[in-house]
Nucleic acid binder design. Structure first.
Lengths: 338, 338
DNA sequence: CATGAATTGTAGAACGTTATACAAAAATAA
DNA sequence: TTATTTTTGTATAACGTTCTACAATTCATG
């Protein structure tokens, strides 16, 4: 079969406009050396024939005007904000963003990125990649890259855009202590590999740094949740049901903070009186009942548009790496204050 | 600049394996006419040189092994299930799915689809497209297409995969009536265009059909929510606060059912005693407190894998349209039964 | 064995662009 | 006017595959 709708090509446009193929190409890329008159004529022909450039053909020698975005978890409600920001940052540039999903699995992520490179994409925005650093650098050497949610301000091969996770964790922890928490615990996420580039690891480090600043022993103060929800609830249950249950909980994400509420309720532990909870990402607003969830607000939109900006610069020719770091904001709601 | 990592080409593989370029191409596509010995040698060379096919070049004459997925709302928690199903259905086929986001705006959606066609994608899966039918048919004539969440079992240009929305609505409504609801109302979604192909419109029709079957007047029984959350809450507030408030609510989605809870609580209306609520999609499970949300379960995963199956068949040469229709399942929880 | 059929491999055009190199024309300077 | 420079447009070789047509070889059949 094969639907062959016989596309209009640059050649037919050239014939219609009575100019050379090269001239049409120039107009298309608005490259140097076209008179206003010729541009006018060519554009008229393109409209008339409903010409659309053939991306694969362009990719053979030039650019594909395609930006690949790596996203690992489609279910994380924070990520759409980033995507919106990227779209806005790319608006009017002619670049089309396409999303690939790595499913949080290194081999899948690796295959996906390779396939984006094979497709001659012009740039890559990776959100919280799982790939190890040398691999990221190998990729960045092949294609302009900006990485979001990856703390490494000394990296030279690619740009990064982040909110300061370490600082955010300190703010949350300081708040919990100020609210009178004497036995604060952080609920983090168990990850196979978790070095200092990881935002969650940075939050752990920030949490512990703030405790130390207050002279509190940090040992055994971090508990680990999992992607598996049932298992996570079990972990929380064990924690809240222990002999010395925490009176303040700093959660690595809002989602796991919700699980905390569920378990606390089942154990008749009152929030915030007996347990103050702070989440991360500020993904839930007024929808949560009966009290709001305190959380660290960090605009995904801003992260996305900044990443787009950095990437466009890099595609444009910048080779020196840039690292944008924004400041998160603590939003206090009923879950951590009466 | 331009990072030119000088890719290994088919030509170099051919030289290394001491065969013709055509032979390597054949191996690559496992096309007819290659001996086991030759395949072996060529594959060894490909491994040795770490060859990767250049997708743009392939797209010039052959296929790109890329499937485009149109998604309109990244925030809808139901959609990741579909995507997982698609991924599973595509596993091992060599096709790479890439996601485009239409932002629920017709011009954006249109530009996106065109750009997928420009990129010579081999097939398209569209989830709840906003484009009008003639436009969809125009697209499907250019590229193999399967549409999800689009009710039109007479369509000949493309395949569809759906859960029966009309039936689901009838099941929900029947249940509400059986629970004793005397004044049932449906909370639907206001859409600019909403013909019978629309899943939400089908739910409205199913709702009314079931009412009629019970001899209940259908007029003024459908209220419309909006994408804007604040506005939606206002609508719900007005509805629940009216002189004849509903005692049963069939919501077009689980998300808007949550808003219902929020408003009901603020008005001291008890769920389910004074107001029974049924949602749609079964996106929330045990996370919801203090009672679970009754909802219609329809496996997005199944929808996705079915769409992938249909699309692969169509890419493989089928030209006759097929329409898969699955049966949803009503899950009763605390929001509609004591 | 001779003949035809099937199998295995190759040469080379084609796909639709971009980009380089250059010719022609127009503008500017002397 | 004549040189010189600048602007405008063209011809054509890539780019890395696929695919058609065909040649060479091996296999089967009588």
């Amino acid at each position: 079969m094969k639907q062959t709708g016989k596309r209009v090509t640059i050649k037919e446009v050239a014939e219609d406009a009575q100019v050379s193929v090269a001239a049409v190409s120039k107009v298309l890329r608005n490259s140097y050396g076209v008179s206003a008159k010729m541009r006018e004529r060519v554009e008229a022909s393109m409209r008339k024939l409903d010409y659309r450039p053939h991306t694969a053909a362009r990719g053979m020698r030039g650019k594909t005007y395609t930006i690949g975005i790596l996203q690992n978890d489609l279910r994380n409600p924070y990520l759409p904000n980033i995507f919106d920001g990227v779209i806005e940052g790319l608006e009017g540039t002619g670049y089309q963003p396409l999303l690939g999903v790595g499913q949080s699995q290194v081999p899948l992520e690796s295959a996906l990125i390779n396939s984006m490179i094979d497709r001659q994409m012009d740039g890559l925005i990776m959100i919280a990649p799982r790939l190890p650093e040398p691999e990221l650098e190998r990729i960045a050497r092949q294609i302009p890259t900006c990485v979001i949610a990856y703390h490494h301000d000394q990296e030279t091969a690619f740009d990064t855009a982040n909110f300061d996770s370490h600082l955010g964790a300190r703010m949350a922890t300081k708040h919990l202590l100020a609210q009178g928490s004497r036995n604060p615990v952080m609920l983090s996420l168990a990850l196979p590999e978790s070095d200092a580039t990881n935002v969650i690891r940075q939050r752990e480090l920030g949490f512990m740094a703030e405790l130390e600043a207050h002279g509190i022993e940090t040992e055994n103060r971090v508990t680990y949740s999992h992607f598996d929800e049932a298992r996570t609830q079990q972990v929380i249950h064990d924690l809240l049901n222990s002999s010395e249950p925490p009176d303040g909980l700093f959660c690595w994400s809002d989602i796991v903070a919700l699980d905390t509420f569920t378990v606390a309720e089942s154990l008749n532990i009152r929030v915030p009186e007996a347990l103050a909870v702070v989440g991360y990402d500020n993904t839930f607003d007024q929808r949560l009942r009966p009290f709001g969830l305190s959380s660290l607000n960090q605009s995904g939109h801003r992260l996305g548009s900044e990443a787009a900006r950095l990437l466009l610069e890099r595609i444009g020719g910048r080779t020196k790496a840039e690292h944008s770091l924004f400041r998160p904001e603590l939003i206090v709601r009923g879950s951590s204050a009466t």
